Computed example of a mutant assay.
Amino acid sequence: MLYFLATTSLTLVQVGAALTTAGLLALPVGPMVGGLVDRYGAKPVLQAANLAQALGFAGYLVVGQTWQIAICAWLNSAGRAVFFSCYGVTVTALAAPGRRERWFGLLGSVRNLGYALGGLLTAVAVSFGTHGVYAAIVVVNALSYLTAFVLMRAVPNIRPEVGQDAAGGWGRVLRDLRYLSVVAHQLCFAISLFVLNIAIPVYAVDVLGLPGWTAGAVFTLNTLMVGFAQGIIVGWLGGRIRSRVLVVGHACFATGYLLFLAADRLASHALAVGVVLLGAISYTFGEVVSGPITSTVAAESAPDGLRGRYLALNQLAVSVAGAVAPAALSGLLSTGAAEIWLTLVGVSVLGATLATTLGKVVPAAQRHIGGV
Score class of each variant (00 low, 15 high):
T90H: 00
T90Q: 01
V91C: 05
T92Q: 10
A96H: 10
G98E: 04
R99T: 11
R99I: 01
R100W: 03
R100N: 08
E101M: 07
R102S: 14
R102A: 13
G105K: 01
L106Y: 15
S109L: 02
V110P: 09
N112I: 11
N112P: 02
G114Q: 11
G114N: 05
A116M: 14
G118I: 11
G118K: 11
L121V: 12
T122M: 14
T122A: 15
T122D: 04
A123T: 13
A123M: 02
V124M: 13
A125T: 12
A125C: 04
F128W: 11
F128V: 11
T130M: 07
H131A: 14
Y134H: 13
A135T: 00
A135L: 05
A136I: 00
V139H: 05
V139E: 00
N141I: 01
N141Q: 11
A142N: 06
A142L: 11
S144I: 10
Y145A: 04
Y145T: 01
L146H: 05
T147I: 15
A148E: 10
M152P: 06
R153W: 01
R153D: 00
V155I: 13
V155L: 12
P156N: 06
N157R: 00
D165A: 11
A166Q: 14
A166F: 07
A166Y: 04
A167G: 04
G168K: 13
G169M: 11
W170N: 09
G171Q: 11
R172G: 07
R172H: 13
R175Y: 05
D176G: 12
D176S: 05
D176Q: 10
R178D: 12
L180M: 12
L180A: 12
S181L: 08
H185M: 10
H185N: 05
L187G: 08
F189N: 02
A190G: 03
A190D: 01
S192D: 03
S192N: 14
L193C: 03
L193E: 05
F194L: 13
V195G: 02
L196Q: 10
L196N: 06
I198K: 09
I200G: 06
I200S: 05
V202E: 08
V205W: 08
D206L: 11
D206V: 07
V207F: 12
G209N: 01
L210P: 11
G212M: 02
W213C: 03
W213S: 04
T214L: 06
A217P: 02
A217C: 02
V218Y: 08
T220S: 15
T220G: 08
L221Y: 12
L221V: 15
N222S: 14
N222A: 04
G227T: 09
F228Y: 13
F228E: 09
F228V: 08
Q230S: 03
G231R: 02
I233T: 03
V234F: 05
V234E: 14
V234I: 15
G235Q: 12
